[in-house]
Nucleic acid binder design. Structure first.
Lengths: 343, 343
DNA sequence: CCCTAGATTTTACGCGCGTTAAAATAAATG
DNA sequence: CATTTATTTTAACGCGCGTAAAATCTAGGG
């Protein structure tokens, strides 16, 4: 390729000896032109390295090649990991992912959706903030743009959802903990950041009662996304005031559990399933760091890969069928019990 | 505002009674029109909610309102946190951040830069992969687009750099560790992922020698970005084979230290500065999770806020002065010794 | 060799906004 | 009130590409 800059498709048409409309077809779908002309184009392409102007393209197409990925808090490694999975799958599917984080701020979430809308994305993968989300705003967006909601559903919104079956996973955890030791207390934040949290609590209660045990819930104060710190502070006071009624604590999520582990360590309470351990702790989500805590954290894994695949699969269906009978469905994945050293 | 969709600026001009060129000026800079007309426009805006088509705008402007943020691995909470800082500051400065992660893949890094270039961003904040980066590719990009490199410099590239002073921080750590106990071994990965790693090792050596101690470096195998796992595996074998010559281990970064902590726990080696602890471990970077490890990790903090501010400040200067005498400078920040329980 | 379906070229218009120059108007000045 | 100065309007072109219609060409089948 040479250094001469090709200004536009017109110029490249002259250089390659192919007409502009044909080039336009080619760039939209290389397989839509005859083999011989494709070869000519690609030859010229290798000599002049021209790329069509993306803004001019997008101005004239009804929809772009972008897929928006919106998560509530990207600095949470859990979402970072999901985002990574989704991004790579988008790329593999020939789309250009655009990643956004609401940073825990509902107003920012709205702004992101607004700016995303005018970007005319082919589709959007949205993990909403949850309780804090502006429902109406999200609803409007979902109605206009092909969207798959994931991780955390806002019910009755008319969109498909991909997430995990919290009821199944919590029951599984409770049953395991009961079978291997004392029935667990449930450790959570007082303010439920999203519907998943409520589902998990309810599933805990149901599972405990089904086994003939009395549920016991410890709620800690704190707002925001600093779950570890909240779990740590809550744990410290809970230990100090003897609020736990069991030697087994099931946490609403791994980040809280990580904080609780820290509190236990500070309080000199040995955690694990060994004979001289005084406490068992379990979490939920298989946070990327859970395998490196001391002791490593027993938890429920989400199958990132399958869930990402499913999300994109559904989104692509929506894109292809152009809003046609979206058949709005929920896809719930089973969690995988991941036994480690903490319980 | 009503539901009627305003198709374009022409239509909105008719509705608002303001001519299109004036509207164009207004949307570019609301303060560039007379107060009375601005009020008229904003009144009409509140009634019809029209937003200019972003693609048409960007096609005709030489540069957009976007600032690209590129990090090597977003699933690393360290970069997630930096990205969060940078994003919020971009927004505050009136820009629209676009976040990209190379996911540890040099080819992807190149693609990101290529697609970023045709996005005509106002500027780019780039943390390169490091050793794996395609230097020439990055160099070309930096020459074309106003760019501030951060976290991890590729020297002699003609761009400004904002990062921390690894020499200062390692010396500080070494001095602290020596003053409070035995001189440390240095624990790192065999393959240096980026120049920072080399600087840290050299700084360790220099600081040790300055204090009259013999440097001792333990290198562990492993490639990729799973630092915790690498640290853990390397730690396990090092403990098993007795490769450490000191009871104090200084790790090249926090993630490695987190893995080493996990290995120590598994190996039943108590870590900390208490009387019955057998090992001290320190890290570098103040990873978001370092305060929740068991024991909490002694490390060097980077001042995310100041570094983000500085990066954007320099970038804005470059944008304003339009490539004019970039005065390419490096801005190194001192680390802050953060003493916790592990050393 | 002719024929025909399918591919390509020609021609021309449209997308929504940036931008400019000249003309018209409004505000500020004395 | 006349004049200067700052804004706005009018009119028109350009940006780079999508796309449609008609004309022309190509390849494969008979």
């Amino acid at each position: 390729m040479d250094g001469q800059k090709v200004r536009n498709m017109e110029e490249f048409a002259a250089l390659s000896g192919i007409s502009r409309p044909t080039l336009s077809k080619y760039f939209h779908d290389p397989d839509s032109v005859r083999n011989s002309t494709r070869e000519k184009i690609e030859l010229a392409l290798s000599e002049h390295d021209y790329r069509p102007n993306i803004f001019a393209i997008n101005q004239n197409r009804r929809t772009t090649n972008n897929i928006g990925i919106v998560v509530p808090f990207l600095a949470d490694p859990f979402f970072a990991e999901i985002a990574r999975n989704l991004e790579q799958r988008c790329i593999a599917a020939g789309y250009a992912p655009m990643l956004f984080s609401a940073h825990g701020d509902p107003a920012l979430e709205c702004e992101i959706l607004d700016s995303l809308r005018q970007q005319k994305p082919a589709g959007v993968l949205l993990a909403p903030l949850g309780r804090a989300s502006d429902r109406k705003h999200v609803e409007k967006f979902v109605a206009d743009v092909p969207t798959v909601v994931f991780d955390n559903n806002l019910p009755d919104m008319g969109s498909s959802f991909v997430g995990m079956d919290n009821t199944q996973s919590m029951r599984m955890l409770v049953e395991y903990l009961c079978a291997s030791g004392s029935p667990p207390n449930f450790f959570e934040m007082r303010v439920a950041v999203n519907p998943n949290v409520n589902r998990r609590r309810n599933a805990y209660i149901a599972a405990m009662e089904a086994l003939g045990h009395t549920p016991e819930i410890i709620r800690v104060d704190g707002d925001g996304w600093e779950f570890e710190e909240i779990g740590r502070q809550g744990g410290l006071t809970a230990f100090a005031t003897g609020r736990f009624t069991s030697d087994t604590i099931l946490c609403s999520n791994d980040r809280l559990a990580i904080g609780l582990l820290s509190a236990a360590f500070t309080s000199d309470i040995k955690v694990g399933r060994g004979p001289n351990a005084r406490l068992r702790i379990a979490g939920h989500d298989d946070h990327p760091f859970s395998r490196f805590t001391c002791p490593s954290l027993t938890t429920v894994s989400q199958d990132y890969a399958s869930m990402s695949d499913k999300s994109l699969e559904i989104l692509m269906q929506m894109i292809d069928s152009e809003h046609q009978a979206q058949s709005q469905k929920d896809f719930l994945f089973d969690g995988i019990l991941t036994k480690r050293a903490s319980a």
